[in-house]
Design a protein around this nucleic acid. Structure first.
Lengths: 235, 235
DNA sequence: CACGCCGATTTTGCATGCAACTTTTGCCGA
DNA sequence: TCGGCAAAAGTTGCATGCAAAATCGGCGTG
């Protein structure tokens, strides 16, 4: 293998998924490619040539091809025999079905979170909420979007069900890109923040049924906005 | 590579996942191993040596290791660096969390199925129901179990949401073994059939709210029976 | 007898080579 | 100019070889 230290130019991987650890190269590659896909750096529908990634990440083809299999199982990539991996291109209907599922899961989780969340976990949701409002006031869209996702994830943490959390994370990742695209329709922004205010309140009072309905309304109007943006550009 | 025709002794793979097709060996291996795990042929917690599978399936280590990555992403297998793949050992809490999630999904799906299912799809559910009753009367436990799973899956088909169906299938596979184990507590059998009678009725009348509650009761009492069997043998 | 240690054997992680397949290139005739 | 087709170039699928790590086995010590 060539000199890794020379090939590796990124400084941001001082983490546990460093590629130069025996037994983790495919995991590392999967994480890097996942990030590229979610960030939109690898556009939907594009092929991902093996050489491009092996050169960029400084690994050989064997662990890379394992990474592609992981990402295919996650639904981020599609592998066509003899033609290799390509970024999955979701249709509008696909995105809608995934969102319908995620909303359904979150409504279920809302009640569990009210029953099971510890005070500390709910306090963490409140902390995130304030962080999100601060990002809103700064008009920092990216930060707002990220913290927003964390708040919804915190509901799953409160529900104390790892299976739900795992599936929610994985399926959210598949459509993260598209949800972010909806930020190009910012008219809903202030209204969404107001809805979150009520959502936090219901969670703190542990009113599961109310939280559920607030979330239902919140997500469906969010989806309507998203769909408006996505409609012209998705198959 | 050695002579495949000699190594391959199984007669049951005249399907699309034949191992001797270029570009499908890992898929084929994943399917075969998946079957072995779900059937309990590879016990939970056991390591799966590469050599054992390569010899049994007549493929080389490269596609096999890709198959392991697929199965790890599906949650059926865990790969420990430098120690290879082992069958995931779920705890009772893990199984309960997955079942809680599946029940939640199915309750959601119940309402969608009543709204969206075509008459033909609901008729198919009825056909499966009669098939299941026939298996019950024959006291054919395996057939009963299999058709029963198909009926619940048919609800997802009626709901016309591929994402829900996909996740349900994949997560069901992870705990299939444990659910089947609960058949060693057959006292609930007759009662379960009676519950299914009502479930089918509610579906045919498209009474989503009623179907939902029937399913909730059906699944939770099923889980209580399952837990009784699993409790002594799972961590 | 239990326990730890060290060498031998086995198993895994990865890079690489080769064959099969796909895509591109370049050439010819219409 | 435009298909169309064949050779060339490039890519992928898989088996294999080698190095690193784990496991096994035997032996000595407490």
């Amino acid at each position: 293998m060539q000199d890794l230290a020379v090939v590796e130019t990124d400084a941001d991987d001082v983490d546990s998924t460093r590629k130069d650890r025996r037994g983790q190269r495919s995991t590392y590659a999967a994480q890097r490619i996942r990030d590229m896909i979610v960030a939109g750096e690898l556009p939907a529908g594009d092929r991902i040539p093996e050489r491009m990634i092996t050169e960029r990440l400084g690994i050989s083809r064997t662990p890379l091809r394992e990474a592609f299999k992981i990402l295919e199982a996650e639904g981020l990539v599609h592998i066509e025999p003899n033609r290799g991996a390509m970024v999955v291109q979701l249709s509008l209907a696909d995105v809608e079905q995934i969102i319908e599922m995620l909303i359904g899961m979150e409504l279920h989780v809302a009640e569990l979170a009210c029953q099971r969340g510890t005070d500390a976990e709910i306090a963490e949701a409140e902390r995130l909420h304030h962080e999100m409002v601060a990002a809103f006031e700064r008009r920092d869209l990216l930060e707002y979007f990220n913290v927003n996702q964390l708040i919804h994830l915190q509901l799953f943490v409160c529900a104390h069900n790892d299976a739900l959390t795992r599936v929610y994370k994985s399926e959210s990742a598949r459509i993260r890109r598209y949800r972010f695209a909806s930020n190009r329709e910012p008219s809903r922004w202030a209204r969404a923040v107001a809805e979150h205010e009520m959502i936090l309140d219901a969670l703190q009072r542990r009113e599961g049924a109310i939280l559920r309905e607030l979330l239902r309304a919140h997500h469906w109007s969010g989806w309507r906005a998203t769909r408006k943006v996505l409609e012209p550009e998705l198959p």
